[in-house]
Write a protein that binds this DNA or RNA. Structure first.
Lengths: 220, 220
DNA sequence: TGGAATAATAAGGTCAGCCATAACATTTTG
DNA sequence: CAAAATGTTATGGCTGACCTTATTATTCCA
């Protein structure tokens, strides 16, 4: 079990690493973008986290989690997603706000509260955005899916999860019916990184590629 | 409704002001002691909070909340105590740890979560330590009681609330059966600020005066 | 292969909320 | 009423996590 005292900022970096792909090498730029800091700041912070043994940074290549970092990160993500479940299922908080509200709570949650919460919620396996919840022992089964942005025209898919975090993006997707469980089909992909045209339920929806990255789908 | 963004530290100062007596003039020293900072730091911070219009400081006399400060403080205390109820009633967290664990959560709680939580808990009026929970509209009915430290020999009283916050103090009192609802009698008060000897249930308990300050009682 | 994009590094700045030390003011108390 | 306790103010310092600006290094791609 992890015994480290992670700062709030550290937790955000770790969480971002998981959200950008648990085992991926992530560029400083992408990390900075996700965390809304400048690349220079991300670089500094990555050095600090490297010093703490949480991740490794290969200059000009990118960043990846160490085993220690992965463990800590899973713990953080577990807390985050458990709170999402609680806020949604029991407090009936608006779907699009779950991430942001759960995020603040996550940073403030002691291990015993995490586990008591998990028990209270009956050990849920997925958060309301469709993402898997790491287990108490640190095991974590990433989704068997891929971003909608990599889908090809004609494909019919099921939305597994929404990987976005900001309320506005979540609201945007929700308003268009792009939610976990939904079936969608790619009707058209505009050239030059243009938007996708999707069939979502009965409706046709245009979706920019960068938004499509947040939508994790599984081809049926 | 309060619209200010209060820092965590600010919230702790406001909370301490309520806990030391909503309408009392509190000395910098007492505040510093409760918050575990040096008097110099408390002084600085009090100046900052004064600048924000949350409290007034009369040099050499003490500090008291302004109306604005009282409103903000009640809000903070409401969140704190609602979380205590949740942690106790639903997550079955150890009584003595409630304050500390709820404290972290409190700082991370958005207004909509507070109100959804209150509804979920069915608008409780008291926290597990016996303290009243301020209402959503800011009204707050302090307890009609006084600290055990001011009781006189022979008095029989009911414990209304425990005003302590640290886990060790709460645990100490719990171990001696000094809990809300309990009836106690002062058998003896040692001179020179010495300890009280109490009858708690069947047992005799010695309790230092400074601990007795945390025990709010009502003479029967 | 050379220019664009991306990344790294350096230097210096900000801000909140603490700390210590020290000098000085006021209040309480014995 | 004097000494002790308490409170105030000033100065300077620290830390974490950001920021900007500027220079330099590397990688990617056309």
């Amino acid at each position: 079990m992890s015994l480290l005292q992670l700062s709030e900022s550290t937790e955000m970096y770790l969480k971002a690493m998981v959200e950008l792909g648990l085992s991926n090498v992530v560029s400083i730029g992408r990390l900075a973008e996700r965390l809304n800091v400048t690349p220079v700041s991300a670089n500094e912070m990555v050095r600090r986290l490297g010093d703490q043994g949480l991740l490794t940074h290969t200059p000009y290549k990118g960043v990846s989690l160490t085993d220690k970092g992965r463990e800590a990160a899973c713990d953080v993500v577990r807390r985050q997603r458990l709170w999402e479940v609680f806020l949604y299922e029991h407090l009936h908080i608006e779907w699009a706000k779950l991430y942001e509200l759960a995020c603040s709570l996550e940073h403030a949650t002691a291990p015993e509260v995490t586990e008591a919460l998990a028990a209270f919620l009956d050990d849920p396996k997925f958060c309301p955005r469709g993402n898997p919840i790491p287990a108490a022992d640190g095991t974590f089964q990433p989704l068997d899916g891929h971003p909608l942005s990599t889908a090809s025209v004609g494909e019919t898919m099921e939305v597994l999860a929404i990987n976005a975090t900001t309320t506005d993006v979540l609201k945007y997707l929700q308003e268009r019916g792009i939610l976990p469980g939904q079936t969608i089909r790619v009707l058209e992909a505009a050239p030059l990184q243009g938007p996708l045209t999707l069939k979502v339920g009965e409706k046709e929806v245009a979706l920019g590629l960068s938004l499509a990255e947040f939508v994790i789908v599984k081809t049926e």
